[in-house]
Amino acid sequence: MKWNLPNILTVLRLIAAPGLAIMFLYFHRPYADWFALLLFISASVTDWVDGYLARAWKQETKLGAMLDPIADKAMVIIALMVIVGYSSMSPWLVLPATVILFREVFVSGLREFLGSTAGTLKVTPLAKWKTTAQMVAIAVLFAQGIFEHYLGMSAWGMDAQLVDDILTGQVEDLHGLRWKLAGMDWTGRIGLWLLWLAAGLTLMTGWDYLRKALPFLKEVR
């Protein structure tokens, strides 16, 4: 095994993946949301940096080739698990998350079954766009959790009528409820749209990988 900077960044990204969930064990919200968002963005940036450096410095290794997709999948799966777990379990969120998780497990199973011929399922440009859409969607959804929690903190102790009066402009908005609600609403919508886009790309790439693997799945008689 060769330990160079690209491989070290990949390993750090892999270690950071469970850190997303651990943040919610040791920190109260919204600090946990902030730390998870910053950790996820940092790890996502290293996904591009380690690949770029490995190619630019000609330091591509088997270790990096193995760990890179594992780190990506771990980040996405754990982040989606945390987001769904802290959401209202809306089917509009759960369904695309389920599609993404199913595809990741399915393609990983295909690669394991194919063994030495798994090189047939090389990462395509569309798969890279899929990963990008997933990571942007997850970052935006983490931001939505931040807005949501700050809105709840600002409205703490207010009755429903007072909150409604503030949001409708009948009472002065001293605590910024309106912009926090707008931030929560827009990040929620955009994050959900991007997650559905990522789910669509996920299905397309999953079908592409299955189509390429079909010749190797035929029984030999």
Rank of each mutant, 00 (worst) to 15 (best):
G119F: 13
L14R: 06
S90R: 12
V171T: 07
D50H: 06
I166L: 04
N7Y: 12
E219I: 11
T120E: 15
W193C: 05
L20S: 03
I190W: 10
Y52E: 07
V105Y: 08
V163W: 05
A213H: 06
E148I: 15
L9R: 03
D164S: 12
L174C: 00
L174K: 07
D208E: 07
A137C: 12
L195Q: 04
G19T: 11
I77D: 10
A17W: 11
A21L: 15
F102H: 03
L5K: 04
S88L: 14
I146E: 06
K2A: 15
P96L: 11
V82A: 07
T131G: 14
V11K: 04
V171S: 02
S87A: 13
Y52G: 05
H175F: 14
V49R: 00
Y86Q: 15
A21P: 01
F113V: 05
F113C: 01
D173M: 07
V76Y: 03
I166H: 03
K128H: 11
L9P: 04
L151E: 12
V11G: 12
L121C: 10
E112V: 08
D159V: 01
E104G: 05
E60L: 14
W193H: 01
V84P: 09
L114C: 06
L5D: 02
T61V: 13
G152V: 11
L167I: 11
A182T: 13
L197N: 02
K218C: 08
A137L: 12
M81D: 10
L9C: 09
L80P: 02
Y52D: 04
L12D: 01
L177E: 07
G176S: 08
F142S: 04
T132V: 12
G200W: 00
G145T: 11
V220M: 12
V123R: 00
F24E: 05
L95R: 02
T46L: 08
G157E: 13
I100D: 03
R178L: 15
L63K: 01
G115T: 06
R13A: 15
S116M: 09
K212P: 01
L177G: 06
T131N: 08
N4F: 10
W92C: 07
G109W: 07
M158I: 02
I22M: 14
Y209I: 02
A133P: 01
I15H: 05
L174G: 00
G206W: 02
L38W: 14
I83T: 08
L210K: 00
T46C: 09
K128R: 12
D208C: 01
T61D: 10
K128G: 09
A118N: 06
Y31V: 15
G157T: 08
V49Y: 01
E172P: 00
A143W: 09
L197S: 03
W186K: 10
L9I: 07
W186S: 12
V82K: 03
A213R: 05
A17M: 11
R189T: 14
L114R: 02
M135R: 11
A133R: 00
L177M: 11
M66R: 13
Y209C: 02
I15K: 04
D50L: 10
R111P: 03
F142I: 07
Y26F: 14
P91A: 14
D68P: 05
A127W: 04
G51P: 05
T46M: 11
A65L: 12
P96N: 10
E104K: 03
W129E: 05
N4I: 08
V11F: 15
A143Q: 09
G119D: 14
F142W: 09
W156R: 15
E60P: 00
A160E: 12
T124L: 08
Q144I: 08
G191C: 10
L217P: 06
P96G: 11
